[in-house]
Design a protein around this nucleic acid. Structure first.
Lengths: 158, 158
DNA sequence: TTGTGCGTTCAGTATTGACTAAACAGACGG
DNA sequence: CCGTCTGTTTAGTCAATACTGAACGCACAA
C-alpha cells in the first residue's frame, strides 16, 4: 500500500517539526528512509509536492548534519541523495556537540559568578557533572556504532 | 559584578532558543540557577523586564518539565519558583520520552511497510536499535542520578 | 559561441509562534 | 458584602522563518 509510506513520511515531518526542525526536512528524511535507491532533487520535489528550492535547502541541511549523503552516477549531472551509511554515528556526534556546548556554557557561567553561595556552586557543579557523564555515555555508544558500521563495509558503488 | 549574572541569563536564553524553546524560558532558567532564594512572578518579570503573562506561561512550562518547582511561604499568597531539586532526573526522563517516541514511530513505520527490501528493513532495525540502546544508557544514568539525589535530602523547608 | 539541464539563491509571501497588555477569575482580609 | 492582591487567560501585535517561484550561475554538449 502506498498510503503507508505516505503516512510514515508525514509522521517524520511532524516529528522533526516537534524538534524545531523544518517539516520538509523531516519528510525528506522519511522519504529517503523508505527508498532503497537514491533520489534526485526533482524526484523528491515531485514526490513531496514542494518547491525545488525547499528541497535544495533542506537536503543540504540534512547533508551537513551527516544524515543523508550526495551520490552521483557517471554520465549523469544530477545529484542524488540517500540515507548516509554512517547516519547514526553522525547523529550521535551532533548530540554530543550539543551537550558539550551546554556544559561549556554552564562552566563559563559558574566561573563568571563573583562569589556564589555554596548551594549555587554545588548546583552548577552537579549540572556540569551530568553533562560530562552524558558525554561519556554518548561517546561509548558512538564507539560501538562506529565499530559495527566498520564491519558492514559500505556499499559505495553507484 | 552584576553584569556576569546578566550575561549568564542571556546566554541561557540564547541556548534554549537554539533548541526551539522560548527565549524567556531560558532566561527564566538562568535567573533561577543563579538565585539561591525562590523568586515570585513579579520579581522575575521585573528582573527580566518582560510581561507578567510571559513569566506565568513560561514558568508553568518549566514547571511541567520538572525543571523548576513552585513553593509557598506561609502567610504569603504569592507563588515562588526555584530550581527543582530533582531537575536532573526530570530532564533525563524527558529526554527518554523523546527517544522512546522516535523509536515508536520508526517501529510503526517499519511495521506498516508492505514488503520492504531487506536493505530498508535492516536500516530501520538498526535505527530502532540505536534508540533502544540510547534508552538503556539514559536509564542507567537516571538510576545513578536518582540514587545520588536521594542521599542529599531535600531542603523542603521554606 | 548558444542552448540545455542542472543546483542554488533570493525577493516576496504566508504562517507560525513568542510576547505584550489588559481583562479576567479566584482567594483572602476587611 | 467589597476591595485588594494574586496568577491565568486571551485578543492583538510583531518578529522570525518556512516556503514558493523565478531569476541566476555554472557546467557540459554541440
Amino acid at each position: 500500500m502506498q498510503g503507508a509510506t505516505n503516512a510514515f513520511i508525514e509522521t517524520m515531518g511532524r516529528h522533526f517539526e516537534e524538534e524545531g526542525i523544518p517539516r520538509i526536512a523531516g519528510r525528506l528524511f522519511g522519504l529517503l528512509m523508505v527508498n532503497e535507491d537514491p533520489c534526485s532533487l526533482d524526484e523528491m520535489a515531485d514526490r513531496l509536492q514542494v518547491s525545488k528550492g525547499s528541497i535544495s535547502t533542506n537536503s543540504r541541511l540534512l547533508e551537513q548534519w551527516g544524515v543523508i549523503e550526495r551520490v552521483n552516477r557517471p554520465g549523469d549531472r544530477r545529484d542524488y541523495y540517500r540515507i548516509a551509511p554512517d547516519m547514526e554515528s553522525r547523529m550521535l556526534e551532533r548530540q554530543m556537540e550539543h551537550v558539550a556546548r551546554l556544559r561549556e556554557r554552564l562552566r563559563d557561567g559558574l566561573d563568571s559568578l563573583p562569589a556564589p553561595p555554596e548551594g549555587i556552586a554545588e548546583r552548577f557543579r552537579s549540572a556540569i557533572d551530568l553533562q560530562d557523564r552524558t558525554l561519556e555515555l554518548l561517546g561509548e555508544a558512538l564507539g560501538r556504532v562506529r565499530q559495527r558500521g566498520a564491519g558492514a563495509g559500505g556499499r559505495d558503488a553507484y
